[in-house]
Structures are given as C-alpha cells and as structure tokens.
C-alpha cells in the first residue's frame, strides 16, 4: 500500500510515480477520455483559441484551489472565497479609480482578502468555531457587506491598460492569468511537497494532537493556510475584475463550490491529511474541460451545474472503493 495520495509515499525511482499516484492516473484517464470524446464530436476543441479559453477558465479556479488544497490538507475549509472574490474586485477597482494606481489597487485587494483570511483563521483556531460554519457566516457578512459598500457594479473609470492586461493580456502565446496561475501552482506545489511547512500541514491535518505533541504550532499553521487562501482570493478577484472590466458585487456566486469540487475531485480528503496539488490541477482541468465541452457541443449550458454535481459524488465514491480495495 504505497500508493496513497501523498507524493512522498511514491515508489522511488519511477519518474511517473514522482508526479502521480493511482487515483490521479484515474483522473488522467478520465481527462483523456473526455478530451478524445469531445474532440471527436467537435474538432474545434483542439483549436488554439479553445485551448487558451479552457486554460484561462482554469486559471481563476486553480489560483484559489491551490490555497483551498492547503486548507483541506490541514483539516479546514473556507466557504467564503466566492463572496470574498466579488468584494475584492469591487475594492480593487474602486481604489484604482480613486488613485489611478494599479499597484495600490492590487495592494488594497490583497490587504482586504488577506484580512478576510486572517479573520476566518482566527474564528476557526482561536474561537474554535467549526470552519464550515464560521466561513458560511463570513460568506453572509461579505455578501451583505459588498452591497453596503456598493449598490451596483464598480465601473472601470481609470482605463489603465495594465489593469486590462491583468485578465486579458498575453505574454508570448500565454494569457497572463494562466501565467499567474502557473506561478501560484509551482510555488504552492513546492511548498507542499518540499518544505517543512508543507509537511507540517499534512501532519496537522492527519492528527492535530500528534502534531501538537511533536512541538508543532498547529493553530498557527492553520492560520497561515487561511491567510494564504485569502491572499490568493485577492489575486483571483483582481483578475476577475479585469476580465469583467468592472467590480461586480454579484460575481463569484457558487465559486466556492466549484473550487471545493475541483479540490475534492483531485483526491484531497475533507477529513485532512491527504491530498496533492497535482490532483487539484487535474480536478480543475476535468471540471473545466467538461464545462467547455458542454459549450462547444452546444448542449444546454445549465448542464454545467448538473455535471460537476455528479462528478464530485462519483469521484468520492470511487475513492472510497479504491481505498477499500487497497485495504485488502
């Protein structure tokens, strides 16, 4: 049983084993099957424009999902990311409108989103409120708060090209959001896989008591994971605002569920201690390829809600079946 989803339990020496374990191979299989099936029905699936579109779609989810993966690994969850995403966009846009400075806008967005993360972290670790409930409450406060902040969308009055570039620009052939997501992914991957911080997160999620008895500051580690997730929401919120060219208070409804669905689909356990970023990447890709397939096959777009629901249940069930088989 060396095939558990922690990459450090890989069999040494196999290059493939370095990046994927058995549950991820299943996901890769699903992804490949989806791509083949969709491209057979709609050849334009592989067009450059479509691939770029899929990647751009993935970027936003992946940025936040990287933080959510860390949170789930250490045994917590954040349901407020969707509401925070919308709020961040409004604040960022507003600050840029007032100051004409992209830097200040981004800093304000990050400061706000980081504070939300910090608040969630304090509620979960100091007040010991179950993070599922605590972050639902934060979500409510943010949903209410954003409308108190602005009644309608904050329009782009500054017309900074650099701001537009954040969402719509390219460096070489790659859209800037994809590059940002790639950087976030690599940093988070390295942090989880190669640093003491990452190893400690797994430990805290696997057994908080054991981690504490071994001299780890479990609460502080969780707090950091909350803040990191918050900051990543800040990044994603600015990209979204740029893409929509406005700060939309209603944006991000249901975003938290998409993110969590992708992370869980990627094999990260809700109960903590298990999960990888590679899995999360695959989870995001599968969900977004399905989304894309529904669009280019001209199926009813409302299926975009139904399919992830089925996929997430199915994926969890497959995980249970696989673990049961492993235990024999």
């Amino acid at each position: 049983m060396t095939s558990e989803s922690l990459s450090s339990t890989r069999k040494p020496g196999t290059a493939f084993g370095l990046f994927a374990d058995r549950s991820q191979i299943v996901l890769i299989g699903i992804l490949a099957a989806l791509c083949i099936a969709i491209s057979l029905a709609a050849p334009q699936f592989y067009s450059e424009a479509n691939v770029i579109a899929i990647l751009r779609q993935c970027a936003l989810v992946l940025i936040v999902a990287a933080g959510m993966t860390m949170l789930l690994i250490c045994g917590e969850v954040d349901l407020s990311v969707g509401a925070s995403l919308a709020f961040v966009g409004c604040i960022g846009m507003d600050v840029i409108n007032r100051t004409g400075s992209l830097t200040l806008g981004v800093l304000a967005a990050l400061a706000f989103a980081g504070t939300v993360g910090l608040f969630n972290g304090i509620v979960a670790t100091r007040l010991r409120v179950n993070s599922l409930i605590g972050t639902i409450a934060t979500m409510m406060m943010l949903q209410g708060g954003v409308f108190l902040y602005t009644r309608e969308a904050v329009q782009n009055h500054h017309h900074l090209p650099s701001f537009t570039g954040l969402g719509a620009g390219y460096i070489g052939p790659l859209p800037i959001p994809v590059i940002i997501a790639a950087i976030v992914f690599v940093v988070a991957f390295v942090a989880l896989r190669y640093t003491t911080f990452g190893r400690y997160l797994y430990a805290v999620g696997a057994s908080e008591n054991a981690a504490r008895l071994s001299g780890l500051r479990a609460e502080r580690l969780k707090l950091i994971a909350f803040v990191v997730t918050g900051l990543l929401v800040g990044v994603a919120g600015m990209i979204l605002a740029s893409l929509m060219n406005a700060g939309q208070p209603t944006a991000g409804r249901g975003f938290e569920l998409t993110v969590i669905a992708a992370v869980i689909l990627g094999g990260t356990s809700l109960s903590g201690g298990r999960g990888t970023l590679i899995g999360t990447l695959l989870g995001v890709l599968v969900l977004k390829v399905i989304d894309n397939g529904i669009i280019i096959l001209r199926w009813n777009q409302d299926l975009q809600m139904v399919v992830p629901g089925i996929v997430i249940i199915l994926a969890t069930w497959l995980d249970i079946v696989r673990r049961r088989a492993d235990a024999r």
């Binding site: 060396t2 558990e4 922690l6 450090s8 339990t9 190893r199 797994y202 430990a203 696997a206 057994s207 008591n209 054991a210 981690a211 008895l213 071994s214 780890l216 356990s269 201690g273 298990r274």
Partner: peptide, 16 residues
Amino acid sequence: GEGLMLELSVQQNMSL
C-alpha cells in the same frame, strides 16, 4: 488519538 498520523507513512511519522 495523539501519537500516530495513521494515514501517513512510517517515514513521515518518525521524522515529524
């Protein structure tokens, strides 16, 4: 309850 991280490996448990 307080010692092992059951879902992790021998190495991860020992070096914590």
